[in-house]
Design a protein around this nucleic acid. Structure first.
Lengths: 247, 247
DNA sequence: CGCTACGTTGAGTGGCATCAAGCGCGGTGG
DNA sequence: CCACCGCGCTTGATGCCACTCAACGTAGCG
């Protein structure tokens, strides 16, 4: 069974079985289990390994002096937390868990070795970070321009599609292991308002939410209601650049 | 005289004179002059060269179907527009000018040649893009959590420091070749409200704005008023990693 | 069985948007 | 040289979207 990272990277590059194996092994070496609402890395720290989410949800966030918190990005299984550590020594934001999370700590040097041996992996990881910044740009648009309802709907579309990209959806449903307070901090809204907007989406039949399970019965409808355009996720094409002649 | 790109990169890596020369020459080959309010690249296009801003201001932006526009990033002299084109074929956003702009079109292959010959340049360019995404993260925080006044003050701090990093400030002042409408689209506010908030900043003596010249008489004061922490710009240290033994 | 965390609901408020009109200035053409 | 025009800035009036404060319901858990 491939790790979510490999499942995701395969959308971009056709990895050879050797490449997959190298990545999968690295992701199984130092696995750590972390409870919800804990920090993985804090602003100011200098990590010397890369954290890979294997299961559960985490987030990047920044906190202002007066306590206001903005969740900057939501990290799903298959997401790498701190690849920038290779170039930038000091974290300018924190990473914390939202749910129970298992992460693999991948040694910096181990990852370097893999990328040196497998240029396709290097390319695929580069693609991974570029998609991450494309998502970041879309969040700016989301918070800056969309109404509260559109914002929440847009976020649901994104999360659902990203979960599907790592095979963690079940038909029209996926896990949503995150509180309304966290949603609020991600969207720049208050938790009270998130609650009301959520009810509106439910009333319109655009989503249902039972327990921690999100269901989107009519994804196209939610997309149009949220002005959602999936192009920024760059999921559509398997990489033509990089074809593995499986050795 | 070095181009702004070299001036900026030197904050991170001590480049040899040969490296500087290579970059400067590439930036002087195909120079183009563009009027204000024009597009450099549009969403959906597939650029095969990299655009480098030499003078003037540009922006990344996205437009929703109903016309709402969000400026995602402001590009200053020394900024590269579309390095992701190396990995992602299709633009998921547009780049347009704010003022009159001169850009250098750098051929993709030419840049590849430079980076292959000069690993320090590769590293420095990587740093450049990482700073870009760090700025993007901070914009998310800015729009998501700060009040209108803090938002505008924060943006002014950032732009001033980034201009200073490429030696385009004059004491406490720098050019601000951008309209209030553009500021509004960058901050997720209406132009009317930007105008009022601007007056508030002026009344408090935090900024003065005459013609297209921004002056920040007391930068520390504006910083605290805006909850500004410059760490995300990663300007503080000249790279220790990468020292040129000038050949 | 009480505690805590999360979700829900109501009332009141305010920040910021929208609409609309007027101002100042530089550019252009008669 | 001046009238005209357009663009960007400014100001006022009005209204709504979303925030704050506060209380209560509910479910999981030690």
């Amino acid at each position: 069974m491939d790790t979510p990272l490999v499942r995701k990277l395969q959308r971009f590059a056709r990895l050879s079985s050797g490449e997959k194996q190298a990545l999968n092994e690295a992701a199984r070496l130092n696995v750590r289990r972390i409870g919800p609402r804990e920090d993985i890395i804090r602003e100011g720290e200098r990590p010397d390994q890369v954290n890979l989410i294997l299961s559960g949800w985490a987030c990047r966030y920044k906190q202002l002096e007066d306590g206001r918190r903005q969740i900057i990005a939501i990290l799903l299984p298959g997401d790498l937390c701190d690849t920038h550590a290779f170039v930038m020594p000091e974290m300018d934001h924190s990473i914390g868990t939202l749910s129970v999370v298992t992460v693999a700590e991948i040694d910096r040097d181990a990852l370097t070795t893999i990328t040196e041996q497998h240029p396709r992996v290097t390319q695929a990881l580069w693609w991974e970070t570029l998609v991450g910044t494309a998502v970041q740009r879309e969040w700016t648009v989301n918070i800056g321009q969309r109404t509260a309802t559109e914002r929440l709907g847009h976020l649901f579309c994104e999360l659902f599609l990203r979960m599907r990209a790592v095979d963690l959806t079940d038909g029209p449903s996926c896990e949503l292991p995150i509180t309304q307070v966290d949603l609020a901090d991600a969207l720049g809204l208050s938790n009270v308002h998130v609650n009301r907007v959520l009810q509106e989406l439910r009333a319109n039949g655009l989503v249902t939410l039972r327990g921690r399970l999100l269901t989107i019965p009519d994804l196209p409808a939610l997309k149009t209601a949220s002005l959602f355009n999936p192009n920024y996720l760059h999921l559509d094409r398997i990489g033509r650049h990089l074809d593995a002649t499986d050795e």
